[in-house]
Design a protein around this nucleic acid. Structure first.
Lengths: 236, 236
DNA sequence: GTGGTTTCTGACGGTTCGTCAATAATGGAA
DNA sequence: TTCCATTATTGACGAACCGTCAGAAACCAC
């Protein structure tokens, strides 16, 4: 069943080739820099052939975004497997999020583009669902750690607060910070030098504020981070 | 000097009229829904005339965004004038941010659009600087409260941490949360019901985590919010 | 080979952008 | 009031890009 005729192989490879060519164009020149004639010329096939693969240019962009979110889920799942107390596993999640931004800073551009109403209208619900599915997976990985923390009595949630609501705070803080970092020049003007460190500083404070034990003053963050990098992400 | 001929008056009014017509189009149909021919038809002037006011459609969108950011600065300044301890003034800032999102949810759409590379390239640096200036004003209003808190010994910043870095955390948390709220359907699927309350919950935790006194368990948040709404924002 | 199927092609119609030469309106001076 | 230099308005136009589709080419099983 998975045996491919030369022709079928060519088609599969071409799809990857289109995405490879499109990615740097979007990164350099954004949504509007990407146009089908240009891709067609670059891959040396006619425009009609490109349209056999992707029904519009928005589909190309969402396909690029999907490649990245899948990677994020992988990083999160790895981080969650870190052996140790729940609070330490959360630090590992933070590290995963930071690595994702460092390694795929372009993703935030794709994410913004695919949220534009004009783009959402044109792209298939199927691909949109894939993105949302990955988002939910990340959420539930982290919510799982929250549940573990509650079970182990490292954390107590106020009456009526769901684990997902706690995750939402972290999600907001980190995604907000990274999106400001990547798009605003104000930061440098305000003299903020190591934004990644600032994000770590605030996530620690947020978890401390929710009284997630052990408190960040009760363990050595630097050596923990080193251990996480070594044990979880050594081959990234 | 400010006496206008009828003609000049007409021109000034037309500019406002163009923006009034453009706004709902962008809100309903996004960046791509807005097109110059359509505006021209709606305002009953030719396209060339529209171009006398705005050199491209991106300029229209950034002009709309400017109207909103100016309003935000105003709300923040009002909030900062709340009489009381620094921690309470921060709650007022949080309330201002929430009011801004509730009253101008569209702004986040404009903000995203004007960050697109294609839009940034085409819009005048002058208008971009206005936006950034408002951002900086908000930042420095809040940083001022942080400085007051430090002076009054309600807050102690770790060695080397600037007030702006603390503000960055709050800014990230709130803007991240609101941007997720406004664009992601995942939230409802995850069962998060009152996102505004969750944002308040997390900002309180973040400030508690930084040990900003009085701690949120030491005062009555609900009555404070009521007082703020009455004393600061009664006429909004 | 052959014929039916799949794939590829690029010219084409449609939409929007931004321009600019021609036209019209304006308002101060005679 | 009339005239005319200045300023404002107009819409047809060229350019860029999208997505389509009828016909050409390639493929493959017999």
């Amino acid at each position: 069943m998975s045996i491919l005729t030369p022709k079928q192989k060519e088609i599969v490879e071409r799809e990857a080739q289109i995405l490879e060519i499109a990615r740097p164009i979007v990164v350099r020149e954004g949504y509007h820099g990407l146009n089908m004639d240009r891709i067609a010329e670059a891959v040396q096939y006619s425009k009609g052939t490109i349209y056999n693969h992707f029904s519009c240019k928005e589909e190309i962009i969402i396909a690029l975004a999907i490649k990245n979110v899948a990677k994020r889920v992988e990083l999160f799942q790895k981080a969650a497997q870190f052996k140790g107390r729940s609070r330490f596993r959360m630090v590992a999640i933070g590290e995963a999020a930071e690595m994702f931004v460092r390694d795929f800073p372009d993703f935030f551009m794709f994410e913004e583009i695919i949220q534009l109403p004009s783009v959402r209208e044109k792209t298939s619900g199927k691909r949109q669902a894939v993105i949302q599915g990955c988002e939910m997976q990340c959420m539930s990985v982290v919510a799982g750690i929250v549940r573990d923390a509650v079970a182990q009595e490292d954390l107590e949630l106020p009456e009526g607060v769901k684990p997902e609501e706690l995750v939402f705070g972290l999600w907001s803080l980190t995604s907000g910070a990274y999106s400001i970092m990547l798009k605003s020049e104000s930061l440098e003007q305000m003299g903020l030098e190591d934004p990644y460190a600032i994000v770590r500083f605030h996530t620690a404070a947020l978890l401390d504020g929710h009284n997630w034990k052990p408190h960040s003053t009760e363990f050595d963050m630097d050596s923990l981070l080193k251990r996480i990098r070594r044990e979880v992400f050594s081959n990234e």
